[in-house]
C-alpha cells in the first residue's frame, strides 16, 4: 500500500505536467515534446521484447519505418483519415512483427541479433527500391499534411498533435503496464530467464514469443505513424541503422525491463543529438561524432555499473532512502 500510493501520485503528477506542457511552451518545444512521447512509445515496445522477453532486436527501426510509411501512404495516397491510418498501419506492423517472430523462434539470442541487424542495415535500401517508387516515392519519400485540431478547437497543429501523442503514449503505457504485471507478463519474463522450466510449466513458448514480437512491432508502428505526422515527411534515410541503435541506447539508458524508465530513455535520445547540433555551431563538423561517442560509452558503462539504467538507479536510491529513514 505505502509502496504503490506514491508511485500512482507521481504518475498522475507527471501526466498533469505533460498535459499542461503544450499550453506553456513555444512551438518548437511542443514539437520536441511530441518527439519524446513518440520515442517513449517505441522504447516501451522494444523493451517489452528485449527487456522483458529477452529477444534482442537491433532492427526495430524497420517496424518504425513500416508504421511511418503505412501512415503516410494511407493518408496521402488513399485518403484515409489519420486517426484510422495509424491504427491500420500499426496492425500491419503487428502482422510483420508476428511473422518475423516465427523464424526468430529458431534463432536464439545471438542469431536474432544478427538477423535484426541485417534488417536494420537493409531497410533504407528496401524503402528506396525503384520498383515501389509509385507508392513509396523512392528516395525522395512522401510528404504528409499535419492534421488540424478537430471541432474548431482553439489549438495549433503542433499542440493538437502533441495531445494525440500524449493520449497514445498514456494508453499504450497502461496497456504495457497491465501486460507485464499479468500472468502473460510473468510468462514472458520466465521465458527470458528459464525457458526450459517455463515450457515445462505449460507456457507455449512459440505463441508467447511471436505474439510478443508482434506487440512490440505494433508499438514501434504507432510511434512510426505518429512520427510521420509530426515530422510531416518520411524518407528512407531516416530509418537506418542509427535509428535502430538509438532505440537500443534508449532502453539501456532508461532501464531494461522497466516501463517508466522509457521516458528518461526517450528524453536522452531526443536531446543528445540536439545538443550535438548546437555544439556543432561552435566546434564544427567534429561535434557530429558526439552523440555516437556518448551513446557508445554509456552503453558500455551502463552494462558495467548500472545494468538497470536510470530506472534501476532510481529504484535502488528509493530503497536506500526508505531503509535509512
Amino acid at each position: 500500500m505505502t509502496g504503490t500510493a506514491p508511485r500512482t501520485l507521481l504518475t498522475l503528477a507527471l501526466f498533469a505536467a505533460a498535459l499542461a506542457f503544450p499550453f506553456l511552451a513555444s512551438g518548437y518545444h511542443i514539437y520536441q515534446g511530441a518527439q519524446v512521447l513518440i520515442l517513449a512509445i517505441a522504447l516501451i515496445g522494444l523493451n517489452l521484447l528485449t527487456g522483458y522477453n529477452g529477444q534482442i532486436s537491433l532492427g526495430h527501426g524497420a517496424f518504425f519505418a513500416i508504421g511511418g510509411y503505412g501512415a503516410a501512404i494511407l493518408t496521402v495516397k488513399l485518403g484515409v483519415p489519420y486517426f484510422l491510418a495509424i491504427p491500420l498501419a500499426s496492425l500491419v506492423c503487428f502482422g510483420a512483427g508476428f511473422l518475423f517472430g516465427f523464424p526468430a523462434l529458431r534463432f536464439g539470442g545471438l542469431y536474432l541479433a544478427l538477423a535484426t541487424f541485417a534488417l536494420a542495415v537493409a531497410t533504407p535500401q528496401i524503402l528506396a527500391y525503384k520498383g515501389f517508387d509509385a507508392v513509396t516515392g523512392g528516395s525522395s519519400g512522401v510528404t504528409l499534411i499535419k492534421p488540424r485540431a478537430p471541432f474548431g478547437l482553439p489549438l495549433s497543429a503542433d499542440q493538437w498533435l502533441y495531445l494525440v501523442c500524449l493520449a497514445c503514449a498514456a494508453i499504450l503505457y497502461f496497456a504495457a503496464r497491465n501486460l507485464v504485471t499479468s500472468r502473460i507478463g510473468r510468462a514472458l519474463v520466465a521465458l527470458r530467464d528459464q525457458p526450459i522450466a517455463a515450457e515445462t510449466m505449460g507456457v507455449d513458448a512459440a505463441l508467447y514469443k511471436t505474439t510478443c514480437f508482434g506487440v512490440s512491432a505494433l508499438y514501434a508502428g504507432v510511434a512510426g505513424g505518429l512520427s510521420a505526422l509530426a515530422v510531416g515527411f518520411v524518407s528512407p534515410e531516416s530509418f537506418g541503422l542509427s535509428l535502430s541503435l538509438s532505440f537500443l541506447v534508449g532502453i539501456v539508458v532508461g532501464g531494461l525491463a522497466s516501463l517508466g524508465g522509457m521516458l528518461f530513455g526517450a528524453l536522452f535520445i531526443e536531446f543528445v543529438p540536439n545538443l550535438a547540433d548546437q555544439l556543432s555551431v561552435t566546434f564544427g563538423e567534429s561535434a557530429k561524432a558526439l552523440p555516437g561517442a556518448i551513446y557508445g560509452v554509456l552503453l558500455i558503462l551502463a552494462m558495467a555499473i548500472m545494468p538497470g539504467g536510470v530506472a534501476g538507479a532510481l529504484r535502488s536510491a528509493l530503497r536506500w532512502a526508505s531503509k535509512t529513514k
Binding site: L245, L248, G292, A293, Y295, G296, V297, L298, L299, I300
Partner: peptide, 12 residues
C-alpha cells in the same frame, strides 16, 4: 550491447 557500444565509439 557492449559490442554495439564499441562500434559506436570507433565510428565516432
Amino acid at each position: 550491447i557492449v559490442f554495439i557500444g564499441l562500434s559506436l565509439i570507433f565510428n565516432a
